[in-house]
């Protein structure tokens, strides 16, 4: 009995050592980013490594923000992210409602097609979509980056919402129907309030995706004043290839809103992520 307890203790020690070790490994890059952002440029590439900056250069942050139109890009990125969230929430939930609570011919077939599109390699869509937007004269506007969100917001979000809606009992809706409420009213007054958690998950994903999107802005935004942080940072890096301290300061600032968001909504984000990846 005692040896078994001992075994268990040893096992736990090993377990926690391993996990702690890897936690540190996972945190080091992030630490390095912040540490570099506070160094003098001359200290960045120095061998042996300086873990902590000798005298923290807070000025780097001011210089970085001045070196490229950070706040404009920040605003553009936020603007696009918000529009994407709004568009996706509205259209994906509407469609999901139709897929789950309304009966119409071809509904199930269309739903299978929708699921199938999740497995389509998207490289086949790039060129025609680009040509479509260019024929519409939408290149160098935000439309190509926003309109798709209002057109269903992607199969994945529809799927996620639909699965949640299905779990809500029909009786709740039938009562309202008998009272003569319109479907839109039932959708907006009954369904949406009941679905807050999943709507939140969809919002977070859309926000993350939009904030990180590089290919879309790269392809569609030509005028530097319209750029987002992702392409703006890339351009900044190209011009100041080696000014690592400033680049890391700008990077930290870009990451900061997401890090804050993560710590505030951590539970929702991880559980939403788990839900989305389970394939159920």
């Amino acid at each position: 009995m005692r040896s078994q307890k001992k075994m268990k203790l040893i096992r736990e020690i090993i377990l926690y050592t391993v996990l702690t070790l890897f936690s540190i490994i996972f945190l080091i890059p992030l630490f390095w980013m912040i540490s570099t952002s506070l160094k003098q440029e001359a200290q960045v590439m120095i061998v042996p490594i300086q873990w902590f900056p000798k005298s923290p250069q807070w000025r780097n942050y001011i210089d970085a923000v001045k070196a490229f139109p950070f706040f404009r890009y920040f605003w553009n990125t936020s603007f696009l992210a918000i529009l994407n969230v709004v568009g996706t929430l509205f259209s994906a939930s509407l469609v999901a409602y139709s897929f789950s609570k309304l009966r119409w011919k071809g509904r199930n077939q269309l739903f299978y097609i929708t699921i199938a599109t999740m497995f389509i390699p998207s490289q086949v869509l790039i060129i025609p979509t680009y040509l479509l937007f260019s024929k519409l004269g939408w290149v160098n506007t935000y439309l190509p980056l926003v309109v798709p969100a209002f057109c269903g917001g992607g199969a994945f979000n529809i799927f996620l919402l639909r699965q949640f809606f299905v779990s809500i009992p029909d009786e709740l809706l039938e009562a309202a129907r008998i009272d003569g409420a319109s479907e839109f009213r039932i959708y907006s007054q009954i369904m949406l309030p009941l679905s807050k958690p999943v709507l939140f998950t969809v919002s977070i994903f859309t926000l993350l995706f939009s904030w990180n999107d590089f290919f879309g802005p790269l392809l569609y935004l030509h005028d530097p004043t319209k750029w987002t942080l992702a392409v703006g940072l890339r351009s900044f890096q190209q011009q100041y290839t080696t000014t690592w301290s400033l680049l890391m300061a700008a990077s930290t600032l870009t990451a900061l809103p997401l890090i804050i968001m993560y710590f505030v909504f951590q539970r929702n984000i991880t559980s939403g992520f788990a839900l989305s990846g389970s394939g159920k």
């Binding site: 259209s91 994906a92 509407l94 469609v95 409602y97 139709s98 897929f99 309304l102 009966r103 119409w104 011919k105 509904r107 269309l110 097609i113 929708t114 599109t117 389509i120 086949v124 869509l125 060129i127 025609p128 979509t129 040509l131 479509l132 798709p148 209002f150 057109c151 269903g152 529809i158 479907e183 959708y187």
Partner: peptide
């Protein structure tokens, strides 16, 4: 009711045709 169903699904039908099925054929 059927009409409402189509109506609600319209954004996605447009999206599906314009941004996925159409481009594949194109």
């Amino acid at each position: 009711k059927s009409l409402t169903g189509y109506l609600f699904a319209t954004p996605w039908i447009i999206g599906l045709v314009c941004f996925i099925i159409g481009p594949i054929f194109a």
